[in-house]
Each structure stands twice: as C-alpha cells, then as structure tokens.
Computed example of a mutant assay.
Amino acid sequence: MAERQINGVLKQVLELGPPLLFFVVYLQLRDTEYVIGARSYDGFIVAAAIFVPILLAAMGALWALTGRLSRMQIVTAVLVIVFGGLTVWFNDERFFKMKTTIVYGLLAAILGFGLWRGQSYLAFVMSEMLPMRDEGWMILTRRLTAMFALLAVANEVIWRTMSNDAWVTIETFVFPVLLFAFFMAQARLFQTYGEDDG
C-alpha cells in the first residue's frame, strides 16, 4: 500500500517530538525522587517510562495518517518498549542509555552485512527518494556504516563517563545534528552519482 502524504511539518513533529518531549520531561523531573508501589525511582527513570507511551502515540498517529511505518521506526519502537521496560523493571537507567548504542550498532551491522554481500541495503530503502547509481550507493553505505558505528561507540563512552544531563542533551540534540551534517556533507556524492529520474 502506498504511503499517504501528510504535511511535512506535522510529520517532523511526530518524528522529532517524542525525543524533545523526553528532554523537557527529564529537565522537569531530574531532581526529584518518586515512590511508586513502595519503590523509589529517580526522575530519569520516570522520564524514560513516560517516553515510551509518548513515542508509541506519535508512531500510532504517523501510521494512521500515512498508512505505513518504516522498518527502522518499528525496530526503534520495539527497542524503546523493551529497554524502557527493563529500565523501569530493574530501576536501572543503564538499559535506556544502551538502547541508543544498540540502535546505531544494529544499523551499522545491517548495512555492514549488506556490504559484505556486495549489496547496498541503503539503496533498497532509499532509492525511490534519491535516484543514484550503484557505485554511489555503495560509497554512501560504507560511509554511513562507519558513521553509525562511530555513534554507537560514542554513545557508550558518553553514558559511561558523563552525567545524565550531558547524555540526555547529546542524545536529543548532538547525535541528530551530526547525522544531519553527515548527509549534508554528502552533497557532492549525490551530485556525482545522482541519476535524473525524469
């Protein structure tokens, strides 16, 4: 079934809104302890628990409006549910922080497996939006695989060595900006290998 088109601003709000809301909720709750069912939870754990239904509501709205979700959105939702649940169940923020490492690591592994097989799985997902010759897709896939691997390693270093405030800020703003900058830096590649789809 073809994806129904929706307003671009609305789509961005539904995709980027949940992480921004997590950031705001975390800032409001970070210095408070909450007792729920005779267990004490810090603000980070409560913010992580609140993030799960916010993300699922946004994805549900996106699916209702467009008629589809990407495979990556579905995988991300499953990981958020699993690791958000583990975070609350064990009352341990490390699970929620590791989610980012696993998402980036999984993306790097999937793209790397495709490269090992001589294929660009990125082209499979994006070629309709961005017509490009096979050679260009292989170059972009190699670069993006390295980028995802670096982000996975960076997340591990950051959450293990920095404060919660630093990790939440970097997770919410720095990683997305780095990915945006990465794609902007590929403009020459797109021009060199792009195909005119008529």
Rank of each mutant, 00 (worst) to 15 (best):
Q73N: 10
A64N: 09
A61D: 03
M72Q: 09
V80E: 02
A77W: 06
A77P: 01
V88I: 10
V78W: 11
M72C: 02
A77Q: 10
V80G: 02
W63T: 05
R71V: 15
A77F: 05
W63F: 14
T66P: 03
M72R: 06
M72D: 10
S70Q: 09
V88E: 02
M72W: 13
E93C: 07
F90V: 13
G85W: 03
I74K: 11
W89P: 02
I81K: 04
W89I: 13
W89K: 08
L65Q: 05
V80N: 06
F90D: 13
F90I: 12
V75T: 07
L62K: 03
T66I: 10
V78S: 05
R94W: 15
G85C: 00
V88T: 05
L86H: 02
V78F: 11
R68Y: 04
R71H: 12
G85F: 08
A77S: 07
G67W: 14
I74S: 00
R94V: 15
T76H: 11
L86M: 12
L62E: 03
W63C: 07
R94N: 13
A61L: 14
G84N: 01
M72I: 14
R71S: 13
G85Q: 05
V80L: 09
D92L: 14
W63P: 01
V75F: 14
E93L: 14
T66Q: 12
V82C: 05
I74E: 00
G67P: 06
R68D: 01
I74G: 00
V88R: 03
V82E: 07
V80R: 04
A77L: 09
F83A: 07
V75G: 02
L62R: 04
M72P: 00
V78I: 15
L65K: 06
E93D: 07
L62Q: 03
V80C: 11
G85N: 06
T87L: 08
V88D: 01
L86C: 08
A77Y: 08
L62N: 01
V75D: 02
V80Q: 00
A77R: 00
T66G: 09
T87R: 04
N91P: 04
Q73I: 14
R68G: 02
D92Y: 15
F90T: 14
G84Y: 08
R71N: 12
A64I: 15
A64S: 13
R71I: 15
G67L: 12
T76Q: 01
A77H: 03
G84P: 00
L62Y: 06
M72A: 10
T87A: 09
V88G: 00
D92S: 09
E93P: 03
V88F: 13
F90H: 12
D92T: 11
L69T: 05
I81R: 04
W89N: 08
S70A: 15
G84K: 07
L69R: 02
I74Q: 09
Q73L: 14
G67C: 09
A61R: 07
G85I: 05
V88W: 08
L62F: 08
E93I: 15
F83P: 01
S70G: 11
E93A: 14
A61V: 15
L86N: 01
G85M: 00
L79S: 05
